[in-house]
Design a protein around this nucleic acid. Structure first.
Length: 485
DNA sequence: TTTTGAGTTGTTCGA
DNA sequence: GTCGAACAACTCAAA
């Protein structure tokens, strides 16, 4: 009997359950070598950002422990991936390599080259779907084209079956007899230096048990009021599952199956939540079919948009010093916890792109570096939605009013008071408009405007008009360009 | 084949 | 205070 091991290449699927590559390897009955390869350059220009690296470090520690408990040592290697895999094949005598697919344009390219070259070396190579309910190449509209509008996409998918999570086998947990050399995790240098991660540390549990706990906590509570509470950043109304989905510590199939098993499928609120999983699918659909979108707008109408790049404005936004309390609260929540409430992401995005006329790519870059749930598909779609240049049925003139949004969704100010404590002493009525607050109230709250808290970087009405003008100018120039052709 | 209606998350203005 | 209309242009699928 031969005993050529199976390599299982872990990537963004840092879990044991519903992991088709791992399961297939265990079922094959040969010794299993699980490996994680650190090769950030290969995702260029979207190498993991600071917050993602922080999460990854802990997720890898946790995965290593979970595998070790079952008798499989997780092997760490430095990239390039092709060399690391080839080395491992030689060292272990492996004849088979399994992994779960990724959808980022640069990685699709790398993986397909790798598949060819490993196959040419005589290896058996198989890839699996571990991260999506429906993979983009299996979905098309009636004309055979990719969808560009969510609702038809979602309606179409609801007529298709969703695969159940893959069961983790009890048997097959066998490592090669000879130990495989592994780099220390520390050599990946994922931990921030200097250590800015205290806020993240207290906020998150980047482990598999943390993932299950978050899913359980959401599906037994907030999901039942999701339709309304998801818009209130001062409450725990959203699932907060995004970083687990981004790292692959949780799969969409697990979320789907758990929600259905809990009998939630018929609930209106739960359905609303599951459609957010659908949005994640849509984001991947767009990323795969329109691979230019992380860098450029989906259509060409925004190719020459008259942005007014201004590093000082961008910095004020990044630091949460725009003078709009709900915006500053969001930007500070992001900086301190690596996460921002979804409603607030839309508000800060709208301000940056519309009022401040900064290119959406600048916002996407900042989110990429600071979010623990950074996901190329969702981030790209979200920012193009904010800019109005993506797959979006909504009107271009939709410009959020940061004051109204604050008053509507943080009426009692729990969110703003938490993240912008210098405003905490203002009464609810004035919390979202410090620049219009009577001096006596500012004084009793201990605030000197422009010193303790900034005046608005841009007046809403003027900023809104400037954005509308820029949109009109862009439209006019596009028409001229059209005529010139 | 052509037409028609609807499309995540909004704001302002005037009655 | 509340309410409806207006604010473009394009995608998709059903009729």
């Amino acid at each position: 009997m031969s005993s050529s091991p199976t390599l299982v290449w872990f990537r963004k699927d840092l879990r044991l359950n519903d992991n088709p590559a791992l399961t297939a390897a265990l079922e094959r009955g040969q010794p299993v070598v699980p490996v994680y390869i650190h090769a950030p350059d290969e995702a260029d220009p979207w190498a993991p950002g600071g917050a993602t690296r922080w999460w990854l470090h802990r997720a890898l520690q946790d995965l290593r422990a979970a595998l070790a408990e079952r008798g499989l040592p997780l092997v760490f290697r430095q990239g390039p991936s092709a060399k690391a895999l080839t080395d491992l094949v030689q060292e272990t005598g492996a004849d088979t390599v399994y992994w779960n697919r990724r959808c980022e344009p640069a990685l699709i390219k790398r993986d397909s080259q790798l598949k060819t070259s490993l196959s040419d070396q005589g290896l058996r190579v198989r890839s699996f779907n571990g991260s999506l309910l429906w993979e983009p190449h299996t979905v098309a509209n009636k004309q055979g084209l990719p969808f560009r509008v969510f609702t038809p996409f979602w309606r179409h998918l609801q007529s298709l079956p969703v695969a159940a999570p893959v069961q983790l086998p009890e048997t097959g947990w066998r490592a090669p007899e000879q130990r495989v050399a592994s780099d220390p995790l520390e050599t990946f240098e994922l931990q921030p230096r200097p250590r800015w991660d205290q806020g993240l540390e207290t906020r998150w549990d980047p482990s598999l048990s943390g993932a299950s706990a978050a899913l359980e906590a959401f599906l037994t509570g907030p999901v039942n009021r999701y339709g309304t509470d998801r818009d209130l950043p001062g409450k725990r109304g959203t699932s907060r599952l995004s970083p687990y989905l981004a790292s692959g510590q949780l799969s969409p199939r697990q979320v789907w199956a758990t929600a259905h098993a809990a009998g939630l499928a018929s609930s209106k609120d739960a359905f609303k939540f599951l459609s957010e999983i659908g949005w994640r699918e849509f984001a991947y659909h767009l990323l795969v079919h329109f691979p230019h979108t992380p860098e450029q707008s989906l259509g060409d109408a925004y190719r020459h948009f008259p942005w007014q790049e201004d590093p000082a404005l961008l910095r004020a936004w990044q630091r949460g010093e725009t003078g709009y309390p709900i915006v500053d609260a969001g930007m500070r929540e992001l900086w301190h916890t690596g996460w921002m409430h979804n409603r607030v992401r839309m508000i800060v995005g709208s301000l940056l792109v519309k009022h401040l006329l900064q290119p959406w790519q600048a916002g996407a870059r900042w989110f990429w570096d600071t979010l623990v749930d950074a996901d190329l598909a969702s981030n790209t779609m979200g920012w193009q939605w904010s800019a109005g240049c993506g797959a979006d049925a909504a009107p271009y003139f939709r410009i959020f009013n940061p004051t109204l949004q604050g008053q509507k969704f943080d009426a009692k100010g729990q969110y703003v008071r938490r993240w912008v404590p210098e405003l905490a002493g203002l009464p609810d009525k004035h919390l979202h408009t410090p620049w219009e607050t009577p001096p006596v109230l500012l004084q009793s709250a201990g605030i000197v405007l422009g010193k303790d808290y900034p005046k608005p970087v841009v007046d809403h009405k003027a900023g809104r008009q400037r954005a509308l003008d820029a949109l009109a100018l862009n439209k006019q120039r596009n028409a001229e360009r059209e005529r010139a052709l």
